[in-house]
Amino acid sequence: KAKLLVLLYAFVATDADTICIGYHANNSTDTVDTILEKNVAVTHSVNLLEDSHNGKLCKLKGIAPLQLGKCNITGWLLGNPECDSLLPARSWSYIVETPNSENGACYPGDLIDYEELREQLSSVSSLERFEIFPKESSWPNHTFNGVTVSCSHRGKSSFYRNLLWLTKKGDSYPKLTNSYVNNKGKEVLVLWGVHHPSSSDEQQSLYSNGNAYVSVASSNYNRRFTPEIAARPKVRDQHGRMNYYWTLLEPGDTIIFEATGNLIAPWYAFALSRGFESGIITSNASMHECNTKCQTPQGAINSNLPFQNIHPVTIGECPKYVRSTKLRMVTGLRNIPSIQYRGLFGAIAGFIEGGWTGMIDGWYGYHHQNEQGSGYAADQKSTQNAINGITNKVNSVIEKMNTQFTAVGKEFNNLEKRMENLNKKVDDGFLDIWTYNAELLVLLENERTLDFHDLNVKNLYEKVKSQLKNNAKEIGNGCFEFYHKCDNECMESVRNGTYDYPKYSEESKLNR
């Protein structure tokens, strides 16, 4: 008799109507990190870190770059004969040098303040090359056809396309004075040089004057150069050297050249137009028929994500570079809930034993079982409120962090190594801060989002509990077992918050 009662009780308990509160689960393989956990499985997430590029040089917003090819900045601007293909260059979106560009200054020497000139050019998007001192009329008392084997072109001695090597005419090199007034309405880049012979005999042979000088002056520039005559090792078949100089001439300003020898005179100059998204990159990537809004030396990035880990040097509207390998923000729920887990921000989770793959029309909802059958029903209101809140948060985070910009490298010469090392340390410090901030932001927001979901499920549970009161009992896994019969209409009233407690209280009292 006792065995019969136990079996009867078990049958009745199993047959009781139930309603459970749960949440969506799926077959997603997404994982995120939080402050407290690593690799948390979630139903949905968004990636904030771009880690792919196309490996190509592309047009930037429809404008092609200027590819210097086998030449570098120095060779292009001075007019190395091997860089003749660059003479027609007028406009570009950015400038590309190759790491091993070999054609710079063909006659050995240095372009002074080269690093600063590169910085200036990094904001130039177009130029006009014009004859600042016409070759045939500007130097009537001097020979202007100086050439050298060091600047050979097609097997013949030649010289820079933008400079003139002035030497004596006959047996004399009379003092020369020439000036140019900038009437271009924009900055003009003027380049010139000073020749330093290897011996007094060479000085006399070329310029006749043993104590020659070169003077260059404008409103913002004033220097006097004296040739340094000295024996030097042979470089590119030359014992002599040429140093090259430049200045930016403001609109309306005048530049005056005065010399008694050794002047490498300007022939062509450049009127410059600035462009905020221009820059110089060093890259071996090849040019393709493609378009982008962000270019790196590795390749083009076409992404609206706020961060990238491809390269710190970028041109155009680019994500911020960070050292992170993963920045994924959760938008959905835990896919593998932890039992009795309390989140960092106070939300209680884990009283549900598992997510439901059968509930596909919402994030949170119900599963019921009664004599009429069983089924899932999503709670659309709480789901939609959660979707709206999380979507707004993700968009806000992306908008705040998605300050796209150009980031170019800084140039230092060989004598500025300590400054370069200090600059690298400062840049590394800023990069570490950006990386830390980005990672911390994602970790915190992921923790908040998961706790937010847990709290929403808990609130749904409490909503049902407050309606049923003692007409049902909690069975410990997020479910309630009714003390009365609850048909589909009754189940719907529980879900929509209109459950009639008094209607079922007498039946429940008897069954309790």
Score class of each variant (00 low, 15 high):
residue 1 K to I: 14
residue 2 A to L: 15
residue 3 K to C: 14
residue 6 V to F: 13
residue 6 V to L: 15
residue 8 L to E: 00
residue 9 Y to P: 02
residue 9 Y to K: 15
residue 14 T to D: 06
residue 17 D to Y: 10
residue 18 T to G: 00
residue 23 Y to R: 02
residue 24 H to Q: 11
residue 24 H to N: 00
residue 24 H to G: 04
residue 27 N to P: 02
residue 28 S to F: 03
residue 31 T to N: 07
residue 31 T to S: 12
residue 34 T to S: 15
residue 35 I to N: 06
residue 39 N to T: 02
residue 41 A to M: 05
residue 44 H to I: 01
residue 44 H to A: 13
residue 47 N to E: 14
residue 50 E to N: 02
residue 50 E to L: 12
residue 51 D to T: 14
residue 53 H to C: 05
residue 55 G to W: 04
residue 56 K to T: 01
residue 56 K to A: 14
residue 59 K to Q: 10
residue 60 L to Y: 13
residue 61 K to C: 00
residue 69 G to R: 15
residue 71 C to L: 04
residue 73 I to R: 01
residue 73 I to P: 14
residue 76 W to H: 08
residue 81 P to E: 11
residue 84 D to C: 08
residue 84 D to T: 13
residue 87 L to Q: 11
residue 91 S to K: 11
residue 92 W to M: 06
residue 93 S to T: 02
residue 100 N to M: 06
residue 101 S to D: 00
residue 101 S to T: 14
residue 103 N to Q: 13
residue 105 A to I: 05
residue 108 P to L: 12
residue 110 D to M: 11
residue 111 L to W: 14
residue 116 E to H: 02
residue 116 E to K: 12
residue 120 Q to C: 06
residue 121 L to N: 01
residue 122 S to H: 08
residue 122 S to I: 03
residue 123 S to E: 14
residue 124 V to Q: 01
residue 125 S to R: 13
residue 125 S to I: 15
residue 126 S to K: 14
residue 144 F to S: 11
residue 147 V to I: 15
residue 152 S to D: 08
residue 157 S to T: 15
residue 160 Y to L: 03
residue 162 N to E: 05
residue 168 K to N: 06
residue 168 K to Q: 14
residue 169 K to P: 00
residue 170 G to T: 12
residue 172 S to L: 08
residue 174 P to M: 14
residue 176 L to K: 00
residue 176 L to V: 15
residue 183 N to H: 05
residue 186 K to A: 09
residue 186 K to Y: 01
residue 187 E to I: 05
residue 187 E to K: 07
residue 188 V to L: 14
residue 188 V to E: 02
residue 189 L to S: 03
residue 189 L to D: 05
residue 200 S to K: 07
residue 201 D to T: 07
residue 201 D to C: 00
residue 203 Q to K: 03
residue 204 Q to D: 15
residue 210 G to C: 01
residue 211 N to F: 11
residue 211 N to S: 02
residue 211 N to P: 12
residue 212 A to L: 02
residue 213 Y to P: 04
residue 215 S to P: 00
residue 217 A to V: 11
residue 218 S to K: 06
residue 220 N to S: 12
residue 222 N to D: 12
residue 224 R to N: 03
residue 226 T to L: 12
residue 227 P to Q: 00
residue 228 E to F: 14
residue 228 E to M: 01
residue 231 A to Y: 14
residue 231 A to C: 07
residue 238 Q to M: 15
residue 239 H to G: 10
residue 240 G to V: 03
residue 243 N to K: 10
residue 247 T to V: 13
residue 249 L to V: 15
residue 249 L to S: 00
residue 252 G to K: 09
residue 258 E to V: 07
residue 259 A to S: 15
residue 261 G to N: 01
residue 262 N to D: 06
residue 267 W to Q: 05
residue 269 A to Y: 00
residue 269 A to H: 02
residue 272 L to E: 01
residue 273 S to Q: 10
residue 275 G to P: 00
residue 276 F to D: 14
residue 277 E to Q: 07
residue 280 I to E: 00
